[in-house]
């Protein structure tokens, strides 16, 4: 019964509010790479790994009133905030995911990072199969506009390592 949706609800319950669609996209991607049980399919897009399936699941849950979505104007664009709603809590209760299905500590830690940094981390993870120097070259070419510094990239590598070690 909509188990993939339930996992996302469980994520939101664990983290509290998530600000920004991009942030949520990257959190789920990174969690998936950390062997969390998310099944959404990802492809590389303008802003790193992106899952259309995840976007649709969130839309479905907004329409079912399982989650609250607040749209706010920010400069020339809109930003979205997500939170689990009462109906979503009830649904999650009814699905009864096994205890510890998602790792709340990991997800909270991701939620504490900035969306721009998570974009970098998820891009590094996307090219993980390549040697480190090639990953750096990819980021320079594909993420030129984000202006990540060499230190940012190093920080992303050590962040990934520490995620792996502590969870």
């Amino acid at each position: 019964m909509l188990h993939e949706h339930a996992k996302l609800l469980s994520l939101l319950k664990g983290t509290g509010e998530v600000v920004g669609r991009k942030k949520l996209q990257k959190m789920v991607y990174i969690a998936k790479k950390m062997n969390q049980p998310f099944r959404e399919k990802y492809q590389f897009h303008m802003y790193g790994p992106y899952s259309e399936e995840l976007t649709l699941q969130m839309e479905e849950m907004c329409q079912a009133d399982f989650i609250g979505e607040v749209r706010e104007k920010k400069g020339g664009y809109y930003q979205y905030r997500y939170e689990i709603a009462a109906k979503g809590e009830e649904f999650l209760e009814a699905v009864r995911l096994p205890e510890g299905t998602v790792n709340e500590n990991l997800l909270r830690r991701l939620n504490d990072s900035s969306s721009k940094f998570l974009e970098l981390v998820s891009t590094v993870l996307y090219f993980e199969h390549l040697p480190k120097e090639e990953i750096k070259a990819k980021i320079e070419k594909l993420k030129a506009r984000q202006n990540y510094s060499a230190e940012d990239i190093e920080e992303a590598f050590s962040y990934i390592e520490s995620l792996r070690n502590s969870h």
């Binding site: 920004g20 669609r21 991009k22 897009h45 303008m46 802003y47 992106y50 259309e52 976007t55 920010k74 664009y77 809109y78 930003q79 979205y80 969306s115």
Partner: peptide, 8 residues
């Protein structure tokens, strides 16, 4: 339609 940081 466009939403920042999503699909072009």
């Amino acid at each position: 339609p466009g939403e920042k940081d999503e699909r072009m």
